[in-house]
């Protein structure tokens, strides 16, 4: 396992190369000179505390927010292209909060996403049999987990060079989280994934590489397991102890400065 990983990490051509990516929302800088690469296989996790710019980075990659810098997909620069062309050149996007079209039916949501001549309907039907049964239902009336399936299905319908998946397990019940993780693991066999995920248990299970952001900048890159096993590092960069990784401790106010001087807030945070 580790040997295979090492082989991959030295494999040269990354599928996605980000260089000097900087983005603003309403005049405020949210992504600051971010550079990293995503290898052509497996799942790479994009980690960091809430609000450090993970979602903004994903959106900036496909041009949903104004940005500068270089985005190279499979060796081709795409940052001058409009969003729809970047997507068509082989990007599957699963946004934070799913963003299904609530007033369209499940079937319509999926049909809208088909961009290949021969979309992989059968694969999607096998992966998400539930959606087939609900194809006539308005997507807005589905449960959160079902909406996430629609959102994932929209990305998996097409042949992609990379999937950008933003917090797929957010707000889902543990059983559904496991299902989503399983789906992602299955998908990762054929397509590389850049995954934003708060649930470190899921990251541990899926991710090979890790890119860690803080304050809109990349502060750490490397092997995901190595990172998660380094308690001091995760404590410092994510503000959580990996022992409590599956609790939502990342949301607390446990700042590294505060924890260094006064341990009280960190304890309070862990209790939350």
């Amino acid at each position: 396992m580790t040997a295979a990983e090492e082989e991959r990490s030295i494999a040269p051509a990354p599928i996605l190369r980000i260089d000097g990516l900087t983005a603003h929302i309403a005049g405020q800088q949210v992504v600051e000179d971010v550079s990293f690469t995503v290898p052509a296989t497996g799942i790479t996790a994009l980690l960091g505390r809430n609000g450090v710019g993970k979602t903004s980075t994903i959106k900036a990659i496909i041009g949903l927010i104004d940005r500068t810098g270089t985005v190279e997909l499979d060796g081709v620069r795409v940052d001058r292209e409009p969003t729809y062309k970047i997507i068509r050149s082989g990007v599957g996007y699963v946004p934070e909060d799913r963003e299904v079209f609530s007033k369209l039916t499940v079937a319509e949501n999926l049909r809208l996403a088909e961009r290949d001549a021969a979309p992989r309907r059968q694969l999607v039907e096998e992966l998400f049999p539930d959606l087939l049964a609900r194809s006539g239902q308005m997507a807005g009336t589905l449960s959160g987990g079902q909406q996430q399936m629609v959102s994932l299905a929209r990305a998996l319908l097409n042949t992609n060079k990379i999937l950008l998946v933003d917090e797929p397990t957010k707000g889902l019940a543990p059983k559904i989280v496991a299902e989503v993780a399983e789906t992602l693991a299955e998908a990762a066999k054929t397509v590389p994934i850049l995954l934003v995920e708060q649930n470190l248990q899921v990251v541990r299970q899926l991710a090979e590489g890790a890119v860690v952001l803080s304050g809109g900048r990349v502060v750490h890159t490397g092997n995901a397991l190595d990172f998660l096993n380094d308690d001091g590092l995760t404590q410092r960069l994510l503000g959580v102890s990996t022992e409590a990784a599956h609790t939502e401790a990342a949301h607390t106010e446990a700042a590294h400065t505060a924890s260094a001087q006064t341990p009280a807030p960190a304890e309070k945070g862990a209790a939350l």
Binding site: Q28, R49, N50, G51, V52, G215, E253, A254, A255, H256, T257, A258, P265
Partner: peptide, 13 residues
């Protein structure tokens, strides 16, 4: 006083 958290820094901004 609390400082350091992302939310805090945004509000400080």
């Amino acid at each position: 006083a609390t400082g350091g958290t992302p939310a805090g820094s945004r509000r400080r901004a």
